[in-house]
């Protein structure tokens, strides 16, 4: 378990620096592969940085399917371009692969698949991660194992009904080794999620399904996400956890951030050069 004081004293700066590096690298990948979905990747940067660099996940890049690893399912497959620099940085594959994203012969596609070291499951088709994660969590429990399962979804993705079948199931079976993080960037493909099918209160929904649910007001604060993950570990005994992480789609990119159609928008290379130069 992470020591909070130690975290505040030293790790926080490292995490913030890492998040900034991942943000820049994500933009650089998008510069060379304009067909990638960059806006929903930029909203999730701090979620993944906190999980992977904050000491919350046990993993071994030299042995991606290490039996004692914690499982992290990236259900919002389109929006995980930012995972490529993270996995390369951690040693799952060479950083030189980042120059080949979406190029012929590369294993790093626009939507990641489990042929990429570090990815657990198939992604891209939405609404699958929670159910598969629940099955893994049940399997780990029935085997008496103490590994945890984390699932990262988007808020638009939660329109898929299969998620709610999984949430009912996980609540019923008290899968307290399962944590779902919702990248709540409030924008789906064709506009604000609230204007398509409003989730109203995700906290109340998860609570009604028997989950321990908390909200992170600023989803671009690694400290706030880390605190939420710690709170879940401390308080969610006997229940699965849901963390509603309020983020901004296209975070940090003028014209893209919070734009209703940002999901399918590309950032012009000149703007990327300017942004990388400025920050």
């Amino acid at each position: 378990m992470m020591n909070m004081l130690q975290f505040e004293a030293g790790v926080l700066e490292k995490l913030n620096a890492k998040a900034h590096w991942v943000w820049r690298e994500t933009l650089k990948i998008h510069r060379q592969s304009q067909e990638t979905r960059v806006a929903s990747s930029l909203s999730a940067v701090e979620i993944f940085v906190t999980l992977y660099y904050g000491g919350f996940l046990r993993f071994d890049p030299a042995n991606p399917l290490w039996e004692l690893r914690d499982r992290c399912i990236i259900s919002k497959g389109h929006g995980s371009l930012c995972m490529y620099p993270i996995l390369a940085d951690l040693g799952y594959f060479s950083v030189t692969e980042l120059e080949k994203v979406c190029k012929e012969g590369s294993f790093l596609g626009g939507i990641p698949d489990p042929v990429i070291p570090g990815y657990e499951t198939i992604n891209g088709s939405l609404g699958h991660g929670a159910g598969v994660g629940a099955g893994m969590a049940l399997g780990l429990k029935r085997k008496g194992r103490n590994q945890s399962v984390y699932v990262v979804t988007g808020d638009g993705e939660l329109h898929e009904g299969s998620n709610w079948e999984a949430f009912m199931f996980a609540g019923q079976h008290r899968l307290d080794n399962l944590t779902v993080l919702v990248d709540n960037n409030h924008i789906s493909m064709l506009g604000p999620t609230d204007e398509i099918i409003s989730h109203r209160s995700l906290i109340r929904k998860f609570d009604a399904f028997g989950w321990f649910a908390i909200e992170v007001a600023d989803g671009h604060s690694v400290a706030a996400i880390a605190k939420a993950l710690q709170d879940c570990r401390r308080e969610a005994s006997g229940k699965p956890s849901a963390i509603i992480v309020n983020t901004r789609k296209g975070n940090g990119v003028p014209g893209l951030q919070d734009a209703p159609l940002s999901h399918v928008a590309a950032i012009k290379p000149d703007l990327i050069d300017q942004l990388i130069g400025e920050r």
Binding site: A130, G131, A134, S162, F169
Partner: peptide, 23 residues
């Protein structure tokens, strides 16, 4: 070694996949 997912075939498959991934 048994679980009933309820009348929820999507979850039936996904939970089965998760269990299979755990061996």
């Amino acid at each position: 070694q048994v679980v009933n997912v309820g009348i929820a075939e999507q979850n039936l498959i996904n939970v089965s996949a998760g269990l299979a991934l755990e061996g």
